[in-house]
Nucleic acid binder design. Structure first.
Length: 422
RNA sequence: GGAGAGGUGGCCGAGUGGUCGAAGGCGCACGCCUGGAAAGCGUGUAUCCGUCACAAGCGGAUCAAGGGUUCGAAUCCCUUUCUCUCCGCCA
């Protein structure tokens, strides 16, 4: 959530800047401001009442000790009254604080000044394009057909044993996927990211910490018997490593990378856009995460985008980088760059990475802070990005590198695959 | 899954109803000492909320979490949760 201080100090600007998201936040911001001041009043009343009863309790104790039990008995009544009052105030405070919190979670992050206005992905600003996005020769197959022909991914088998969106990778297909994962992790390692293998299920607190709950309830698979959620991305467990943490300033930046399987329900999408590997319920992804000093986060964002871009270049895939417009920007992000690879056979761009700076939005929820050199505890900035999501990379790689006999493996992957073509 | 023992500050560890946010130690920071360092000595060292200038000061909360008993709880009771030990099961 955003810093409530921003609303106390300059609610007008908050409203103004949220307009970039096509959001009219005026009403919500006003209600936050009201709830905030009410909460503070309530807090004051409660504190005063407790202070009073504390003094009283001490006096009663003294009276008992000095044998003035009679006098003490009289004060007990007063004490009981204060206790009752404190209880009522506490309950009201809890209600107000709960309301305030609920309202705050409904406010998205404030977009960075560079975020362009716009509604849909069509309004995103392409900031970079590399490689040639050429139409594939007419005989080129989309990956789902290619996979069938080469017998490397079996979609029907996955549907049989689980359901749609759970492909079965097979033979060189499985090996290629594993090669990509290893390649991505090695590259992240070289770039200074520490590898993490996180749990694939998280509890509700963690899901809340990164904003999957309550905003995206229903996106995640929920294991009811144990009240756990299958992670939609390793961002969730990895970022939650920092929940309720105060880092030392010199520990920043923290750079973590994690490979994990990801699970998404993605309810209600069908058709061409989700065929084959384009959109799955279960997929693999390597994620990079950074926790930085507030002044260094945009430098880190650039570094992360560049890292992903280098991966794509090494894989020899044509790609472009888009700065997301206000309407396309995720709830928690201040600025996001999407990286998309060109899929010749499908004739379209596939999103393979999304790199975001959340500034302090996540760290407020997570209570992630660092101790500044002046000894103050300040919220750190968090960033994350895919580096990379496997299925679409696999799709683009297969489609773009196909020739008559099969598929050519890019040079960088050969040490990992052990073969140079499929 | 069964039985038992426990969860106190960055760590270890006192503390079984009163002035305890909490002794002591370690660690850490700063200072003294030193040519420099170690040792030694000294000082300081949790988080959040409110008031307020996001200062000082003051008030409140927090000893796993939640609830209860009591004038008063880290200390007593209940529930939950986690850890450890033993047994069972098991990749």
């Amino acid at each position: 959530m955003i810093d409530i201080q921003l609303i106390r100090e300059n609610s007008r600007e908050v409203i103004e800047r949220l307009k970039v998201r096509n959001m009219d936040a005026a009403g919500l911001v006003e209600r936050v401001a009201e709830a905030d001041s009410e909460r503070r009043q309530m807090q004051k009343q409660l504190d005063d009442t407790l202070a009073e009863s504390k003094v009283l309790a001490r006096r009663i104790g003294e009276l008992f000790k000095s044998g003035k039990g009679q006098e003490a008995e009289g004060l007990k009544q007063e004490s009981g009254r204060l206790k009752q009052q404190a209880k009522v105030l506490q309950e009201r405070l809890d209600v107000v604080a709960g309301e305030l919190n609920e309202l705050m979670t409904r406010l998205p992050n404030i977009p960075h000044p560079s975020v362009p206005a716009g509604n849909t992905e069509a309004d995103n600003e392409i900031v970079r394009e590399e490689g040639k996005a050429e139409a594939a020769p007419p005989e080129a197959l989309p990956h789902w057909e290619l996979c069938k022909k080469l017998d490397i991914i079996d979609f029907e088998a996955g549907t049989k044993i689980t359901g749609a969106g759970f492909p079965v990778y097979k033979g060189k297909g499985a090996r290629l996927q594993r090669a990509l994962i290893a390649f991505f992790l090695d590259e992240a390692d070289k770039a200074g990211y520490t590898e993490i293998q996180p749990p694939l299920m998280v509890n509700a607190d963690s899901a809340y910490g990164t904003g999957q709950l309550p905003d995206k309830d229903g996106q995640m698979y929920h294991v009811q018997s144990d009240d756990l959620y299958l992670i939609p991305t390793s961002e969730v467990p990895v970022t939650n490593l920092f929940r309720d943490t105060i880092l030392k300033e010199d520990e920043l930046p923290v750079k973590y990378t994690a490979y994990s399987v990801c699970f998404r329900r993605e309810a209600g999408s069908y058709g061409k856009d989700v065929r084959g590997l384009n959109r799955l319920h279960q997929f693999d992804k390597v994620e990079i995460v950074q926790v930085t000093h507030p002044e260094k986060s945009y430098q880190a964002l650039k570094e992360m985008v560049d890292h992903v871009a280098v991966l794509l270049k090494k894989l020899e895939l044509p790609f472009r980088v888009a700065r997301l417009c206000g309407g396309d920007l995720g709830f928690a992000a201040a600025l996001t760059f999407d990286l998309e690879v060109w899929s010749g056979a499908q004739g379209r761009w596939l999103e393979v990475s999304s790199v975001s700076n959340f500034e302090t939005y996540q760290s407020h929820r997570l209570k992630l802070r660092y101790r500044s050199s002046e000894g103050r505890n300040l919220h750190a900035h968090t960033l994350n990005g895919s580096a990379l999501a496997l299925p679409r990379i696999l799709a683009a790689l297969l489609e773009n590198n196909q020739d008559k006999g099969g598929v050519i493996i890019p040079e960088v992957l050969r040490p990992y695959t052990g073969f140079d073509r499929i």
